[in-house]
Design a protein around this nucleic acid. Structure first.
Lengths: 223, 223
DNA sequence: ATTTATTTTTAGACATATCTAAATTATTAA
DNA sequence: TTAATAATTTAGATATGTCTAAAAATAAAT
């Protein structure tokens, strides 16, 4: 009958959702432990608990997958997080880079009525101050149109969310150069002559792509 | 070095503050256990912890007293609680009787900057929607002028906060008729002829006071 | 002032969320 | 394909916040 989640459970669920957001739908114990800044052993205990509550599928040594029920809960938390971020920036004059930590706390406030009223008060915003889409009451959101890397301009910043080609050759190449789904990248330089592109990852690493490969990599805008 | 309190610790501290607010400065284990809806044994463990942190004075079998440091923290939590209540009512159109539970959650959000900005956004309100005073950043607040029971009109509702006479005869009389500091009372009837007054306590109990006694009992307005 | 009743504390449990160290399973390499 | 390496799980601890039942201290009553 323990139907509500602890804040910790909510945070794990959200992390699982985010890790499985970009195509990779199976989440490893290690990656979760990194997200949560805990040890793998701790994650094992937790995923068992979330699995008992039918919010994820878990098989030992095989990783976890979020269920529809889990996704619904995760999206509700994300909705709250992003609405509060809008509140902090639009109403309280915070800078967009100061709000994440506070929203991490506010997202756990429990009151469906509060969320509704806050949403209305803010004018039903569609994106948060970072450009991330805000799920509606039913967990639906505009995924934000994706653009091909080849189509965007210099300085464009986005999340690498899709590969329009599932040849393992390309995937292996991406692996080798160190680009993964979910990475945030910025376009540093476009060469008009041959359409090749230089990007920079959040960790500062720079990568070159040919025009061909650029036309296969999809980005979702974030700011 | 554990300098921040858990939400539970904050709630205990707030309860101790409220229980010792109206003159009675020593709080018993039993009264705290009633406030917190826990067992006395649980309270004993907790007050020991708060005592270790120098937020209360505790002597076994003797009850607890809040320290200046504890009062400062308690007032900060109360400040946040009441500011959020104003936000919920003024900005989000909640009714004043719907906001307490939500504010109980919001009061634990940690961010001094957030509190400042919220305060400014709300126009530095002096009282919450229930008429309770909002402490400022330094924990100071207008206690709300107190009025003598003899001075107020019929239907006035207030908290009995002070006795302007510490003769034990009067205190014993109050004890006998069942009135205690902190009780919320309403004036039911004033007799013009001799200035005697009939009041009703929250539990429905009615009490008569002579004009003399009425002039010694101080009330703080609440609504 | 001694007995009785009440209040408070102690002792021992349990659940959650975490850890370290050891054991097990899966993956990679020779 | 067996051996070495990496990932994951299990086992056993710790800290927090709670409980019940029993012991101890204080307060009330005869």
């Amino acid at each position: 009958m323990r139907n509500t989640l602890t804040q910790t459970e909510e945070n794990y669920l959200k992390a699982i959702y985010h890790l499985s957001e970009n195509g990779i739908d199976t989440v490893s114990t290690t990656s979760l432990s990194e997200s949560m800044a805990t040890k793998p052993a701790t994650v094992t205990d937790m995923v068992r608990k979330l699995s008992d509550k039918r919010l994820i599928h878990y098989e030992r040594y095989k990783g976890v997958n979020i269920t529809d029920a889990g996704k619904e809960l995760a999206l509700n938390i994300i909705r709250k997080h992003r609405l509060w971020e809008v509140f902090l920036v639009d109403k309280l004059q915070f800078n967009w880079d100061e709000v994440h930590e506070i929203a991490e706390q506010l997202e756990h406030i429990r009151s469906p009525l509060l969320v509704d009223k806050l949403d209305a008060y803010l004018g039903h915003p569609k994106v948060d101050p970072h450009g991330d889409p805000i799920p509606d009451k039913n967990g639906k959101f505009q995924a934000g149109p994706t653009l091909m890397l080849s189509e965007v301009e210099e300085n464009y910043t986005g999340i690498f969310v899709n590969v329009t080609d599932d040849s393992s050759a390309l995937l292996q190449h991406l692996d080798k150069v160190g680009l993964q789904l979910g990475d945030k990248i910025q376009v540093i330089e476009k060469t008009e002559f041959d359409g090749s592109i230089k990007i920079r990852k959040e960790d500062g690493k720079e990568i070159f792509f040919s025009a061909h490969i650029s036309s296969l990599l999809a980005l979702r805008k974030i700011a």
